[in-house]
Design a protein around this nucleic acid. Structure first.
Lengths: 259, 259
DNA sequence: CCATTAACGCACTATCTGGTTACTTTCTTA
DNA sequence: TAAGAAAGTAACCAGATAGTGCGTTAATGG
């Protein structure tokens, strides 16, 4: 009857196996985890899931990181509105209070997650060092990278979609993102200029429009992979389908910039 | 003190200006709308928003339509998870009970809204009669239509995004959508074939890939109009920006299919 | 004109959910 | 090593929120 659970587990149970009118009583019987051993003689049917007094180590940075990671997954899966703070805390193996301590609110947490996501992709793009590669190859590499990045980081797409549903109110506040974006645009601008000079690209192409198009042909394919697979009656995520799409995308962009 | 509200309004007030422990008493004093005039001498400060005993007309189809319209707006604005059934009922000037009567559940309502959205765009596409136009012009017309449709019906985009967040579980159940989609793909296929025959298009282009690309370059621009305006530091929704983007898109597609 | 049916509406519930209060425990440093 | 700061925790709450039971009212058809 009086099995000992960790307090967290208990709360979880109380929520799932809800028995109207009793939940409060059950909760109040529970003692904090660390005090559990103060009770008098314990029954023998206790499972020793918690070997001894676990020497809990404190690490603010690690906890923050775990929360951010869990939040990224949760928001990516369910959006900002559908994401649950309780679930994030549980997945991060952190107390919900910590989330409010470090990030202030659910929206504050979302903003940090989103900001990090943008910094991540922009950083990865800078690492490509496209300025040092021949223009045509640089462009192909960028198309390939963009497609692969969306493929391997589908959370990025879902987070951005969520943010657009909220009219970019969180991103507006971020100054870092603007700095990174400027660098990115000028990178593509540089490729175009070099290509025009060599005569491999035609002149007069707006780097922003080109950027948008490169992102679009990959982004749309990924974000609509579920409805797309139904509408077009083929598995858009099959290996061959992905390879075919990437080839098509590279072809599209190279034809677009060709003289 | 004893102002007369419609029962619906009253409920709304009770929720916003919540005063714990009193809401029930307030509610119970309220009489149904049609009985409001049975009360004794009315105070003079009543605004005659409801002229007399309104002869409420019954129309199942009209009510359903109002619910669907309100639901489309609500789901488009807040997603499936963020959309509120109470708000839909209020906006539709219908009772929440009717939503469950006609659509079974929140998800059932969403599914109907989504299905209608797909049927709407596919119907509009069929009306273009692209089979009877010269291939090059047909393709340009399709690119233009797609872009304009997204521009004028932003709900379509948000609904599709929401559906993809839920891995297309609702669309999977819809047979109508598949039939309409098939027609659409074969329409583009026909344009391509005719163009190849005339020699204005190159051979070997997959109509599905072309379709995806045409959709992508418009869809991405619209769905990311908020974050995009920040990242690229220009108002993507300004008149000139929209015109420039459309020109760029037409150019992209025509260069893609050119021999 | 009456009775059946279908449209409509109110009050209510079980449960969830973001956020907070009021602590305890561990770490750091003076 | 004492004491303050920082990290961590459980319990709790007010206000939503999807969904329902059951009664009322208008249309319909015999």
């Amino acid at each position: 009857m009086s099995q000992v659970f960790s307090a967290t587990k208990m709360r979880h149970r109380a929520r799932k196996n809800f028995d109207a009118g009793q939940q409060l009583c059950v909760r109040l019987e529970v003692k904090p985890t660390t005090l559990a051993l103060e009770n008098d003689t314990l029954p023998t049917d206790i499972e020793p899931t918690e070997p001894a007094a676990k020497p809990r180590i404190r690490d603010a940075e690690a906890t923050k990181a775990r929360i951010l990671d869990a939040a990224k997954k949760e928001f990516a899966k369910n959006g900002l509105g559908g994401g649950r703070v309780d679930d994030i805390a549980e997945k991060a193996k952190a107390n919900k209070r910590m989330i409010y301590h470090y990030f202030g609110s659910k929206e504050g947490l979302f903003q940090t997650v989103l900001e990090n996501a943008y910094v991540d992709i922009r950083t990865a793009e800078q690492k490509l060092k496209l300025d040092h590669i021949e223009p045509k190859q640089a462009l192909e590499k960028l198309v390939r990278f963009t497609f692969d990045y969306y493929l391997k980081n589908p959370e990025f797409i879902t987070l951005v979609n969520s943010e657009n549903l909220h009219r970019a109110k969180h991103l507006k506040k971020s100054e870092v993102v603007k700095v990174y974006s400027r660098k990115f645009v000028s990178m593509v601008e540089n490729i175009l200029e070099r290509g025009v000079a060599t005569g491999v690209f035609r002149a007069g192409i707006d780097p922003v429009q080109l950027n948008i198009t490169i992102a679009a042909i990959g982004y749309y394919y990924m974000t609509n992979r579920f409805t797309g697979s139904i509408v077009f009656e083929r598995d858009l995520m099959a290996k061959e389908a992905l390879e075919e799409r990437l080839r098509f995308n590279i072809d599209t962009i190279l034809r677009l910039v060709a003289p």
